[in-house]
Amino acid sequence: MITGWFTGEGDGFRLLGTRCSSCASVFFPREDVHCRNPHCAGGTLEETPLSRTGRVWSYTDARYRPPSPFASDAELPWEPYALIAVELAAERIVVLGQAAPGITVADLAVGMEVEAVEGVLHGGGEAESATTWNWRPTGAAS
């Protein structure tokens, strides 16, 4: 359902956005129809990988089970996960994502370097949509 949002595996994993050929704005989630810069006459939007690493803009966690359409097995006890908003310097954009499994708010600090890694979409689902992105402190064990 989120085709074209990321590519590659392992160290080659990258989020994918689109870059305006006219003003160089980079959009994530991808804009494929129009550039959102009101000062731009509009260019073609070309797929571009985003920076793999960025710095924590802020973070929080989900201590309670979110409502649908978030998928989770209601039979299992709720396991909180952290959410990290990450500032990518080259694109000057902040991207929200779940932290990699096992990373808690106690492991995080604003300004810390994190990297985009492959993750598993909560609740799984059909194979093609089961992959997502996670943020993980650079150098943290996977």
Binding site: P29, S58, T60, S68, P69, A71, L83, G97, Q98
Partner: peptide
């Protein structure tokens, strides 16, 4: 999937309080 309000729940489980938590932590840090 074209609706950001649907996507943030489906993809991230990012509830309204999650955003409030981000803003609060940011104020603490800055």
């Amino acid at each position: 999937p074209d609706d950001p309000d649907w996507l943030r729940f489906w993809l991230l489980g990012a509830t309204n309080p999650a955003y409030f938590g981000l803003y609060a932590r940011r104020r603490m840090a800055v």
